[in-house]
C-alpha cells in the first residue's frame, strides 16, 4: 500500500512538476473550448438541416442523418488517427488548410480540434433535436397560424426555446468532450495526460498523472453541480407552469 502512495501521491514530485502539468492542462482547456465552440455551431446546423420541411430537401436530411449516425458510431480515437494520417496527403487542399498553424498552434492541434468538433457536432445535433422536439407542438401551430415561414419559426420561436431546454445535456456533453481531448495525445499533442506520462517515463513515478486528474476535477465537478442546479430549476419551472 505504501508503494501505491509513493507511486501516485508523491507530493514533492507534484510540486516540482506543477508548472508543466498546468501548462499541459491549459492545452487541454484550449482544445476543449475551441472544439466545443465549433461543435455547438456545427451541431445546430446539422439539427436544422434535419428539420427542413418539404420533399425536395429529403437528400439533405438523409445526409445529415447519415453523418450523425457515422460520427456517433465511430470511436473518436479513430477519427483523430484518420484525420491526422490523411490530411498531409490531401494534395488538393491548400497548404494553410492541409497543415494549419493558426495562432501559433501546430497542425496536430488543429487536426485534434477538427476530429473532436466533427464528432461532438454529431452528439450536439442529437441534443438539439431532442430540445426541438420537446418544444410544445402548440408553439409551432401558433407560429404557423401567424404566417411565419419555417425559417422564421425556427429562428424566433423553436430554437431559442429548444436551446434553453437542453443546457444540462449540453454541459454534460462538454464535460465528456473535455475528457476526450486526452485522446489527441496519440498524434503528438501534449495535453495534460501526455505530460503526466512523459513525467512518468522520466521519473518512473506516476504522481503527475494524479495531479492531472485533480486538475480535471477542479473543472468538471463545479460544472457537474451547475448541471444539477439547471435541472432542478427546470423541474421547478415545469411544476409552476400555466396549463
Amino acid at each position: 500500500m505504501d508503494v501505491f502512495f509513493e507511486q501516485y501521491f508523491d507530493i514533492s514530485l507534484m510540486r516540482e512538476n506543477f508548472g508543466i502539468v498546468l501548462e499541459g492542462f491549459w492545452e487541454t482547456v484550449q482544445l476543449a473550448l475551441i472544439s466545443a465552440a465549433i461543435a455547438l455551431v456545427w451541431g445546430l446546423v446539422l439539427a436544422l438541416i434535419r428539420q427542413l420541411p418539404g420533399k425536395g430537401t429529403a437528400p439533405a436530411r438523409w445526409l445529415a442523418i447519415a453523418y450523425i449516425d457515422a460520427f456517433r458510431g465511430i470511436p473518436l480515437l479513430l477519427v483523430v488517427l484518420i484525420i491526422s494520417g490523411s490530411f498531409p496527403f490531401l494534395d488538393f487542399l491548400p497548404e494553410w488548410l492541409r497543415a494549419p498553424t493558426w495562432f501559433g498552434k501546430p497542425d496536430i492541434f488543429w487536426y485534434g480540434v477538427l476530429a473532436i468538433a466533427l464528432t461532438y457536432g454529431a452528439y450536439y445535433a442529437e441534443v438539439y433535436r431532442a430540445g426541438i422536439e420537446a418544444v410544445p407542438h402548440g408553439q409551432r401551430e401558433a407560429a404557423r397560424s401567424l404566417g411565419m415561414s419555417h425559417a422564421a419559426e425556427m429562428r424566433h420561436v423553436i430554437v431559442p426555446q429548444a436551446v434553453r431546454k437542453v443546457i444540462p445535456p449540453m454541459l454534460n456533453d462538454f464535460i465528456a468532450l473535455m475528457k476526450d481531448t486526452s485522446l489527441v495525445q496519440v498524434i503528438g499533442v501534449v495535453e495534460v495526460v501526455k505530460v503526466g506520462r512523459e513525467i512518468q517515463a522520466d521519473t518512473f513515478n506516476s504522481s503527475a498523472l494524479t495531479l492531472g486528474a485533480i486538475l480535471f476535477l477542479v473543472v468538471t465537478i463545479p460544472l457537474a453541480r451547475i448541471v444539477d442546479r439547471q435541472i432542478n430549476r427546470q423541474q421547478l419551472r415545469l411544476q409552476r407552469a400555466a396549463p
Binding site: G138, Q139, A142, L146, G147, M148, A152, V157, R164, A242
Partner: peptide
C-alpha cells in the same frame, strides 16, 4: 392552450409576426 411564446415579453409576442412576416 394560449401558445404564447414564453421566451418573449408580451409586447414582443404581439410584434414578432408583424415584423418578421409583414
Amino acid at each position: 392552450q394560449f401558445n404564447l411564446f414564453p421566451h418573449k415579453s408580451v409586447l414582443e409576442n404581439v410584434t414578432l409576426a408583424p415584423v418578421t412576416v409583414l
